[in-house]
């Protein structure tokens, strides 16, 4: 039986849905459009096939996700990932935390920050700038009212400008959304090993 993972991990798990994903060969035209199926691209994850049950939401969320995490200007991509990781540790989304820790490590070419976050969570000893970003993300994720004026002023004190603060609010909020899909609709499981 496949093992469900309960601890944060650097190795990206597989994701096992708790409900039946749609079957690609039974998808309607709206679903195929949302899944961006083309003759050369027929590989779709179980996660996306699960979300395709609600195709109208899927169609608007994918471009919104990409805009928040990847649009140019404002906060660096690696710091937006800290917003995502902060939300994911609050919501205990093992899968999201793993994927976005991996992206942060790739972007910064270091595991240092995410290793510390996985061990000590909100209290991880980071640079003043990373610590302020993480603290704000954790509070906004935990209960929006926990994030206060002092936390925002701390972001300004460590050098974040308005554009960066807005991007942090966006990436953190976005993972309030993503975590509730990934963590609620499926389980993170140890990847199966192919013995080819």
């Amino acid at each position: 039986m496949t093992e469900i993972l309960h601890k944060f991990t650097r190795s990206i798990p597989d994701w096992r849905p708790r409900i039946e994903p749609i079957k690609l060969d039974e998808a309607n035209s709206d679903q195929l459009e949302a899944l961006q199926i083309t003759p050369s691209n027929t590989k779709v994850s179980d996660y996306v096939l699960t979300l395709a049950h609600d195709v109208e939401s899927l169609k608007v969320r994918s471009p919104l996700f990409n805009a928040i995490m990847y649009d140019k200007g404002g906060m660096s991509r690696s710091e937006r990932e800290i917003g995502a990781i902060g939300a994911s540790i609050v919501n205990r989304c093992i899968y999201c935390a793993s994927v976005h820790a991996s992206r942060h490590a790739q972007l910064t070419k270091s595991d240092d920050v995410t290793d510390k976050i996985f061990v000590d969570g909100e209290n991880a000893k980071l640079s003043a700038r990373d610590a302020a970003i993480l603290k704000f993300a954790v509070k906004l994720s935990d209960a929006p009212s926990r994030a206060n004026k002092d936390d925002l002023n701390e972001l300004k004190t460590v050098g974040l400008h308005e554009e960066e603060i807005l991007d942090l609010i966006l990436s953190t909020s976005l993972f309030g959304w993503a975590n509730r899909l990934m963590h609620v609709l499926g389980d993170p499981v140890r990847p199966t090993v192919n013995e080819d």
Partner: peptide, 23 residues
């Protein structure tokens, strides 16, 4: 999935409003 999407979207919208209010 529809219930999860509704709940998840609200989490996003509420946090966005709270964050912007702080700004």
């Amino acid at each position: 999935v529809r219930l999860a999407e509704l709940n998840s979207f609200m989490a996003y919208q509420i946090r966005l409003i709270a964050g912007l209010r702080l700004m």
